[in-house]
């Protein structure tokens, strides 16, 4: 305890952080709440002297927006697909990494590289990989020329190239690209956490299991996974939260149009919706942000409830 005589010193030391937090975190949160509940609020209008009445019109507007349902659907779908896939993949990779001795450090570094790479840049690389130049409609004299490495590989195995992301591509193909990209992007952090968890499991549990003649599958399901469950719960919860805020990955691949050429906004997400509204309709954007917060809050509560039942600490 700091003696009360000197507590003002402590406050002075804390002041820079507190001031910054108040300005850039606390106030925006309060302001979001305020804007969300003022009918049709816009900053420009407010600066011009307009006054807005209290009401829940912004929320109504958001929910009635057709685009909002698309955004919510896209976000949910991406979450539901990518969280389990990336978690399972990360778990398998972490277990394999943990099992090998030589080059472990090097491989660990390689697997961690995506984490320190800019996601927009990665998105552009992915866009190039899945790219396709030419037309998928294939008229009589039309040649289909692929440029992306993925379609080249498909072609090598005698498969037809797929229009992944270009004009006229299907929603399903777009989603596949997004899922692959998001999963790949989510892996490093999860592998890091799970590998750390694995390495902290007492080796004697495995020795005991070995003496008792436990099959490898049972060791994995009955010992490794339960002992790793706190870390698994952690990565699943944080990944769900991150998944609901998915935005930059789609910008990285499809650009700010949030969809393939000719069909913009098809892959828009909740955060994308908020950004779109932010330009002129700050009230609506705030309401959407609060709705997103509510959804994340509920999902996290469910996650915590489930993990409490299933997790061993």
């Amino acid at each position: 305890m700091v003696e009360s005589k000197h507590s003002w010193k402590a406050w002075i030391y804390l002041a820079p952080a507190i001031v910054l937090l108040l300005i850039f975190t606390v106030w925006p949160i309060i302001n979001t709440l305020r804007m969300a509940f003022l009918e049709g609020y816009s900053t420009m209008g407010a600066v011009g002297g307009a006054t807005y009445e209290f009401g829940i019109g912004n929320f109504k507007q958001v929910l009635e927006y057709k685009d909002f349902l698309t955004c919510l659907g896209n976000t949910m779908l991406l979450c539901v697909l990518t969280v389990p896939i990336s978690t399972i993949l990360a778990l398998l990779i972490a277990v394999c990494l943990n099992a090998i001795k030589p080059l472990q450090r090097l491989l660990q570094t390689i697997f961690f590289l995506p984490y320190v790479t800019n996601s927009i840049a990665i998105g552009m690389v992915f866009a190039a990989m899945f790219n396709m130049v030419g037309s998928a409609f294939g008229g009589e004299n039309e040649l289909i020329i692929t440029a992306g490495i993925i379609n080249n590989v498909l072609g090598f195995f005698g498969m037809d190239p797929v229009n992944w992301i270009n004009a006229g591509s299907s929603y399903g193909a777009n989603m596949v690209v997004m899922v692959v990209y998001i999963v790949w992007n989510a892996l490093p952090f999860k592998i890091l956490i799970l590998l750390g968890g694995l390495q902290s499991i007492n080796k004697q549990y495995y020795d005991a299991a070995k003496v008792d003649g436990t099959s490898r599958r049972r060791v994995f399901t009955r010992i490794t996974v339960p002992l790793l469950s706190p870390m698994l719960a952690y990565v699943v919860i944080t990944d769900f939260i991150g998944g609901f805020k998915e935005y930059s990955s789609i910008v990285g691949i499809f650009g700010e149009d949030m969809g393939p050429t000719g069909d913009p906004r098809r892959l828009n997400t909740m955060v994308g919706f908020i950004y779109d509204a932010l330009a002129n309709h700050q009230g609506r954007a705030s309401a959407a942000a609060l709705i997103l917060f509510g959804i994340i809050f509920v999902v996290t509560l469910i996650n915590l409830y489930v993990s409490k039942k299933k997790t061993h600490y």
């Binding site: 070995k210 008792d212 003649g213």
Partner: peptide, 27 residues
């Protein structure tokens, strides 16, 4: 080790912490 039919008691017991006593013995 698994084919030798030995029972081994470790210095710090190595009981599986997530299992009950019954599950540990049944394992």
């Amino acid at each position: 080790a698994e084919d030798r039919g030995v029972g081994l008691v470790f210095q710090n017991y190595a009981l599986y912490p997530h299992m009950t006593v019954k599950q540990n013995i049944l394992f």
